[in-house]
Design a protein around this nucleic acid. Structure first.
Length: 514
DNA sequence: AAGTTATGGCTCC
DNA sequence: TGGAGCCCCTAACT
């Protein structure tokens, strides 16, 4: 409480309450003010949106015209208003670990008006919000031939997914971005406009490109690199900047190739680049101009894209499928994942849209849905979730595994000790290991092994494998393994700073809307 | 422990 | 075209 040295000089204070039934005067009536304190948050289940009992913001207004007269009273209004829309009669915000939406706003999840997140069909349904897009039938000859070529690569039967769901180790305060290749060379593109390469054997690094050779010349000139990929077959590092341009560097000569090419709207940020894993001539880009674009590397010039995939908002990421390279998965700020089942078909509209909460872009790294490189059917994707759920009293942000062929939520992975959002996630190319980036921390997850002891009370999440529901026992592992996962992607032991989870705090299955 | 801050994106004018 | 103002669940640091 601030000192009240000028207390005696204060004019009379009128308190205007919500009920209008009590009006108290005098500034020394502290008990009256204290009554408005709400105490600990209620643990009870949230009521309907028009609840009027708890959680209101207090709005204090001073009548300035009266204040000028000196002795005139100051009116303090304690009428409670929604902190989102500033209107009385309802509330918004956390109640315990459950977030109550403002009913005056469109649904926070699917963005449609008329309901809130609590009752959004995309939230309560296990299908998790798949919206089949109208499928245009285009069976041209090229598509037919290429489909016949690619089809044998895709297994007709989906195997059971193995979802990493236990944290085995963590690195705190890890904050670097690298792009590794197989030969131990790390390439890094930076927001300072430089590309550098570092040899992990020698530790030597060198600069390949600098887009700001003259230093800071104001924000309208400062070039920042966002999108990056390496085309191993061509020996090219590709980067893209915040003004819509693509740059290429030869990894053999470490020299820039040609001039910058405008691949997205001039002045807009290009946030993603991905080279096709099967056809090295194909490049996929995405950016803030609401488009993902497919390019032929052999004819790269402004306006020469093979296809432009339209989105309603910024496209955080766009990836070819990892095995056949024939599918595309994008993450957009409109809270939807989009899937194009064949890059050889009609690309005017996506094959499917999946509603998923990931529209948080400010302050955090944008969410990116990634393919599971081990899934031979190319239908499993992993993406962190922005919106939180109440898991046994804790507001957690799970990492979702989604079957993008159906929109089904296959698994939601979380840990009671990890309360932060995980916008970036990457699955191991061979092992059942998940690396997730959370703010300034890096977490490594793996599936629980059968041999590990299980506490009976430690009921954990429901994981659906291959369509069959299967209850798993969850136990947070306080130690990291020293004899496994030693393939260079896992850091161990010393940096691990988490305590063992109490069994009572283990997460529960996601509550279904009442 | 509250306040601050990070160079974000959208809409409106 | 560009600037002002606005914006619902951050999280680390002071």
């Amino acid at each position: 409480m601030a000192p009240r040295t000028r207390r005696m000089a204060f004019p009379k204070v009128l308190i205007e309450r919500d009920t209008d039934s009590e009006q108290s005067s005098s500034s020394d009536d502290e008990d009256e003010l204290e009554e408005e304190d709400e105490g600990p948050p209620s643990e009870s289940e949230p009521e309907e949106e028009d609840s009027t009992k708890n959680g209101y913001e207090e709005r204090i207004e001073e009548d300035l015209s009266l204040k000028k007269k000196g002795k005139a009273p100051i009116t303090i209004s304690l009428k409670k208003v929604c902190k989102v829309c500033k209107k009385p009669g309802h509330e918004a915000g956390f109640k315990g670990a459950t977030y109550i939406d403002c009913p005056m706003k469109p649904c926070f999840l699917c963005k449609m008006p008329g309901h809130t997140t609590m009752t959004c069909p995309h939230r309560v349904a296990i299908e998790h919000g798949v919206i089949p897009a109208p499928r245009t039938s285009t069976h041209n000859t090229v598509e037919y031939v290429l489909q016949r070529q690619l089809r044998p690569r895709i297994l007709p039967i989906k195997p059971a997914y193995v979802i990493p769901d236990q944290v085995c180790c963590a690195v705190i305060r890890y904050h670097s971005r690298f792009k590794s290749t197989n030969d131990g060379m790390v390439y890094a593109a930076s927001s300072d406009g430089t590309i550098s390469s570092t040899d992990l054997e020698t530790g030597m690094s060198s600069s390949l490109m600098n887009l700001n050779p003259n230093g800071w010349q104001g924000p309208s000139n400062w070039r920042m690199l966002y999108g990056m990929d390496i085309n191993s077959e061509k020996g090219v590092v590709l980067v893209a900047d915040n003004f819509g341009f693509l740059y290429m560097v030869d990894t053999r000569s470490n020299s820039k190739i040609g001039e910058a090419i405008l691949i997205h709207k001039k002045g807009s940020k290009v946030v993603g680049l991905h080279c096709n894993p099967v056809q090295p001539e194909l490049l996929l880009s995405c950016g803030n101009d609401h488009f993902a674009r497919i390019w032929d590397m052999r004819q790269l010039k402004a306006g020469s894209s093979l296809s432009d995939l339209a989105h309603k908002r910024v496209v955080n990421s766009a990836y070819f499928s990892p095995l056949s390279g024939s599918k595309i998965l994008t993450t957009s700020q409109d809270n939807r994942l989009r899937i194009w089942d064949s890059i050889f078909g009609n690309l005017d509209s996506p094959s499917r849209e999946i509603v998923h909460s990931h529209d948080f872009n400010r302050h955090l790294t944008p969410f990116r849905a990634e393919w599971d490189p081990k899934d031979p059917t190319e239908s499993l994707a992993v993406i962190g979730r922005y919106i939180s759920e109440n898991y046994n009293g804790a507001a957690l942000h799970p990492i979702d595994f989604i079957d993008i062929s159906t929109g089904q939520l296959v698994a939601e992975v979380m840990d009671p000790n990890i309360t932060t959002i995980s916008p970036v996630n990457k699955l191991h190319p061979r092992d059942d290991i998940l690396a997730s980036g959370s703010s300034r921390s890096l977490f490594i997850w793996r599936p629980k092994e059968k041999s590990e002891p299980v506490e009976k009370k430690d009921e954990s999440k429901i994981i659906i494998c291959g369509g069959a529901m299967k209850k798993r026992k969850g136990k947070f592992r306080g130690e990291s393994d020293d004899d496994s996962e030693d393939d260079g992607c896992v850091s161990k032991g010393k940096n691990f700073q988490f305590k063992k989870a109490e069994s009572k705090s283990a997460p529960r299955p996601r509550k279904v809307n009442k």
